[in-house]
């Protein structure tokens, strides 16, 4: 079954629901059932936060290494350089998120115009 399999108006909405909404939210519902009465100080929560952070890090890597759209047309060294440059300056200048974001964007734009 495909996005344009049926000519009725509601089919694409049902398609989005089954192919996108349920496969995403089912994990959120599973989280609600699995968390039980775990409290903030539980050692389990340290482990769960590690797994969550690791998974988000893999998503970040996806954005940098295998992006979609225009970003994909820029060379990998430029994407990596801008990301590490921004993150590095963020780390050494008192960990202000805005600093990391601005430095990374300036590096990316500079590289964009030079290449």
């Amino acid at each position: 079954m495909f996005y344009n399999s049926f000519e009725v108006w509601w089919w694409p909405f049902l398609f989005i629901l089954i192919a996108g909404v349920v496969p995403t939210s089912v994990w959120r519902w599973a989280g609600v059932f699995l968390v039980g009465n775990l409290d903030e100080t539980s050692e389990w929560l340290v482990f769960i936060r590690c797994i969550a952070t690791g998974l988000v890090a893999a998503v970040i890597a996806q954005f940098v290494f295998n992006p979609t759209g225009t970003l994909a047309e820029l060379p990998l060294w430029l994407r990596l350089g801008a990301a590490f440059g921004g993150f590095g300056v963020f780390l050494v200048t008192g960990r202000k998120v805005i600093v990391g974001v601005v430095v990374a964007e300036v590096l990316l734009l500079t590289g964009f115009w030079l290449t």
Binding site: P23, T24, S25, W27, R28, A30, G31, V32, L34, V35, L38, D39, E40, S42, L45, I48, R49, I51, A52, L55, V56, V59
Partner: peptide, 14 residues
């Protein structure tokens, strides 16, 4: 790709 939602939800709820 959405599996992260489970540990994220579990970390947020408490």
């Amino acid at each position: 790709a959405a599996i992260r939602m489970m540990p994220m939800t579990m970390a947020l709820i408490p």
